[in-house]
């Protein structure tokens, strides 16, 4: 790499003495645009409702001004909901990007780690048995099933292929338990459970946002750190080992970070459908490259969820839909358009 004429397509190479770095210009541009769109969607979302608040007032309130009622509506009702969507979307998208790269499978999502299915069993059991504490039940279900799947897949080490297959089997088992619980529940509980199962941000407050924010502060840097190992892992387990990667440690780190991110998001907002699967694929097609970019996925995930929640409050106003129904309705056409426009073969 000593050639001074080294040219990387689509990247600007920065040099400072012996240090050099390649900046993927397109990824940076996509990320910045998505960030601007997310902020705009967030401002509109906190302003929209029965009591409309203009963007200037939003700014005044955030900086400490505004009337008492404006402060109450914004800070206690709307901001937690928007932040919850923002953080959950980012967490799910990063978890999806990690899982798809780790499994080398574009159809994979944290579902193969059992997170969503386990969380669903926990939450539906809490609803049907009338225990309450839905977020805690969901978190416990998610983490327990992810741990169980990892342990079941352990046989003198973890093999990505075996982990995916075992996660698949375990996911079906957990989905079966959820159906079984739903068949035995009374109809009112089934309705409540199906709203939770769609993924909804209704009624989310700071008690949902705080744990999720703490989780992201810890886990997002961890995700970027483990993604360095993933760069090698995508060539296959044997090649990665040959290149000097400590395979078991790297795989454990990826699985733990991805499962924890997804679990935190699902506990707060329910299994918002499709974000973990579709956003990494959209980010990959927007940014180019050989694997889904993490930061761009996080920002696009946040944008998708916040934007869809805003739509979910507008389309059937004064009623509202669970945001998880909108993410698929909005995300699908976009993914299909990307697929059609440039049908490149990406094997994940």
């Amino acid at each position: 790499m000593s050639s001074p004429l080294l040219v990387l397509p689509g990247r600007r190479v920065l040099r400072a003495g012996p240090v050099s770095a390649a900046i993927p210009l397109r990824t940076v541009a996509v990320t910045l645009l998505a960030l601007a769109a997310t902020v705009a969607a967030g401002v509109v979302a906190v302003g929209h409702g029965d009591f409309p608040i203009s963007p200037e007032t939003v700014w005044q309130v955030v900086t400490g001004g505004g009337t008492r009622i404006e402060r109450h509506i914004l800070l206690n009702l709307r901001l937690p909901r928007v932040l919850c969507g923002l953080l959950a979307g980012a967490a799910l998208a990063v978890a999806g990007a990690l899982t798809q790269t780790f499994a080398r499978n574009p159809l994979a999502s944290p579902d193969v780690l059992g997170v969503t299915y386990g969380a669903s069993v926990g939450a539906v059991a809490a609803i049907v048995l009338g225990v309450g504490l839905i977020p805690i039940a969901a978190l416990a279900g998610a983490l327990l099933s992810a741990a169980a799947i990892y342990l079941l897949a352990w046989r003198q080490g973890i093999d990505g292929y075996r982990l995916v297959l075992i996660g698949l089997g375990a996911g079906q088992l957990l989905a079966g338990i959820t159906s079984w619980l739903l068949l035995r529940a009374d109809v009112a509980d089934v309705s409540r459970a199906s709203i939770w199962l769609s993924g909804s941000l209704a009624g989310r407050d700071w008690s949902h946002v705080r744990p999720l924010a703490v989780a992201l502060v810890v886990l997002l840097p961890a995700a970027v750190a483990v993604s360095i190992a993933l760069r090698v892992l995508q060539f296959g387990d044997d090649t990665a080992r040959g290149l000097g990667l400590r395979l078991q440690g790297a795989q454990l780190a990826v699985v733990v970070v991805a499962a924890a991110l997804a679990a935190a998001a699902v506990a707060a907002a329910g299994p918002i459908e499709f974000v973990a699967f579709v956003v990494p694929q959209i980010a990959l097609r927007l940014c180019g490259g050989s694997r889904p970019p993490l930061v761009a996925s996080a920002v696009l995930g946040a944008f998708l969820v916040v934007g869809c929640d805003l739509l979910a409050r507008i389309v059937v106003a004064p009623e509202e839909l669970p945001v998880g129904l909108l993410t698929a309705m909005v995300g699908t056409p976009y993914l299909l358009w990307l697929l059609l426009r440039r049908s490149r073969r990406i094997s994940g």
Partner: peptide
């Protein structure tokens, strides 16, 4: 993608 779309209409 289309399965998820149909599933969200169903839900």
């Amino acid at each position: 993608a289309l399965s998820a779309l149909f599933a969200s209409f169903t839900s």
